[in-house]
Simulated scan of single mutants.
Amino acid sequence: MLLFLLLQATAPAVPADWSTLPPLPAAMAPQVTPPLTRFVADEIAAGRCAQPKPADGHYVLKVDVAALIGADGAIRRSLPRAINCPTVEQYSAGLVVSFARANPQPRAGGADLWYRATIVYDWRG
Rank of each mutant, 00 (worst) to 15 (best):
M1Q: 15
L2I: 13
L5G: 15
L5W: 15
L5K: 14
L6R: 04
Q8S: 14
A11W: 02
A11Q: 09
A11C: 04
A11E: 11
P12N: 14
A13P: 02
A13L: 08
P15D: 13
W18M: 11
W18Q: 13
S19W: 03
T20M: 14
L21Q: 07
P22R: 12
P23R: 08
P23Y: 07
L24W: 02
L24N: 01
L24G: 00
A26T: 08
A27R: 03
A27K: 05
A27F: 04
A27Y: 05
A27T: 04
M28N: 02
A29F: 00
Q31H: 13
Q31G: 06
V32E: 09
V32F: 10
T33M: 10
P34A: 12
P35N: 14
P35D: 15
P35W: 11
T37L: 12
T37Y: 12
T37I: 13
F39G: 05
F39L: 11
F39D: 02
V40L: 13
V40N: 03
A41W: 00
D42Q: 15
D42W: 13
E43P: 06
A45K: 15
A46F: 11
A46Q: 14
A50C: 08
P54N: 12
D56W: 09
D56C: 08
G57H: 04
G57F: 11
H58V: 03
H58T: 05
Y59L: 02
Y59A: 02
Y59Q: 02
L61K: 02
K62Q: 09
K62C: 04
K62I: 03
V63H: 01
V63I: 14
V65S: 02
V65M: 04
A66G: 03
L68W: 05
L68T: 04
I69C: 07
G70L: 05
G70A: 15
A71V: 08
A71L: 06
D72P: 01
G73I: 00
G73Q: 00
A74D: 05
I75C: 07
S78P: 07
P80T: 06
P80A: 05
R81I: 01
I83L: 11
N84Q: 11
N84D: 14
C85K: 00
V88Y: 01
E89S: 06
E89F: 06
E89W: 04
Q90H: 07
Q90N: 09
Q90R: 10
Y91F: 10
Y91H: 03
S92R: 01
A93V: 00
G94L: 04
G94R: 09
L95S: 11
V97P: 05
V97N: 09
S98L: 12
F99Q: 04
A100Q: 00
R101S: 12
A102R: 15
P104V: 01
Q105L: 00
Q105R: 05
P106Q: 01
R107K: 14
G109Q: 08
G109S: 10
G110I: 03
G110D: 13
G110S: 10
A111K: 10
A111P: 07
A111R: 08
D112E: 13
D112N: 09
L113K: 09
L113A: 11
L113Q: 10
L113R: 12
Y115W: 02
A117H: 03
A117M: 04
I119T: 10
I119S: 05
V120A: 08
V120I: 11
V120G: 09
Y121T: 00
Y121F: 08
R124V: 06
G125W: 14
